[in-house]
């Protein structure tokens, strides 16, 4: 739950990045992810210019690089698992650095690692710099079905609460088993989950009552005016342009050419 506690969308900062319209940040994030993932499987160096984006956003927003990295690494296991097969199946040597022969498999593995880091860090930065309610307001304005946005908001609201209940149940069980933490046997686990579920159902009933007591009629209404300003527009334009250039021009190649490396 720490992940949620740390970044639960109450990104309360007031940096220029925080103040951008959530829609602008969403658009740029998507552009970024698409640009990064659109490279060929062996591309590593061409991905490097894209590192600028998370670095710049993290710096400008004052979000600590450590928290971005920690969150980003949380995504690593599955990717590494699948990516690690590449070196075994793709053994064509494609680069020689000095005496070292690098196979396509290792290059593509490296590429997977880099693009994973980039894509995940962009999403992480989006939530770290955007209040969740405003993000949802942006999603509503961007024509997502209202039921779905409302669902996101309710889910986000009650995750912490139910997670707390779950934790307390497990702790109570642990205490009864003399301090040593046995893994839950299925016979204990299933009723525990069942109980958690019944409590969740009761909670839903009570919340529904509280809503009806305040005249809920099936429609959730919110006042969250968003103003798309010129700086939002510029933000999209600037980063979009940068991504475009880096996607279609070989910036690292040009740089190394300038530096005279052949």
């Amino acid at each position: 739950m720490e992940a949620l506690a740390g970044a639960s969308g109450d990104a309360l900062g007031s940096s220029p990045v925080h103040r951008l319209d959530p829609r602008a940040k969403c658009v740029v994030t998507v552009l970024f992810v698409v640009a990064v993932t659109s490279f060929g499987r062996y591309d590593v160096s061409r991905l490097m210019p894209f590192v600028l984006y998370p670095v710049a956003i993290a710096t400008l927003s004052g979000v600590s690089a450590g928290s971005v990295a920690a969150r980003t690494l949380a995504a690593a296991p599955f990717i590494l698992l699948v990516g690690l097969f590449n070196p075994f199946f793709d053994r064509q040597v494609i680069v020689r650095i000095g005496g070292l022969a690098v196979t396509g498999g290792w290059m593509s593995f490296l590429s997977i690692a880099v693009r994973s880091f980039l894509a995940v860090s962009a999403a992480v930065l989006l939530v770290l710099t955007t209040r969740f309610d405003l993000l949802c307001a942006g999603l509503r304005k961007m024509c997502l079905p209202r039921v779905f946005v409302t669902q996101l908001e309710f889910l986000h609201r009650y995750i912490g609460l139910l997670a707390g209940e779950a934790q307390r149940m497990v702790r109570a069980h642990d205490l009864r088993s003399n301090g040593n933490r046995p893994k839950l046997a299925l016979v204990v686990y299933a009723p525990m989950i069942g109980l958690l579920l019944l409590r969740a159902l009761d909670r839903a009933t009570r919340v529904h009552r509280a809503m009806k007591a305040r005249l809920f009629d099936g429609e959730i209404r919110v006042l969250r005016p968003l103003a798309f300003s010129r700086s939002d527009f510029l933000f999209i334009l600037a980063w979009g342009g940068y991504f475009l250039v880096c996607r279609f021009a070989d910036v690292p190649g040009l740089l190394s050419g300038l530096a005279g490396v052949r």
């Binding site: 969308g9 209040r131 969740f132 309610d133 949802c136 908001e153 309710f154 986000h156 609201r157 009650y158 609460l161 909670r203 009570r206 919340v207 009552r209 509280a210 809503m211 919110v222």
Partner: peptide, 8 residues
């Protein structure tokens, strides 16, 4: 917790 169901 039941009464405060909105995000903010």
């Amino acid at each position: 917790e039941d009464q405060l169901f909105m995000p903010t």
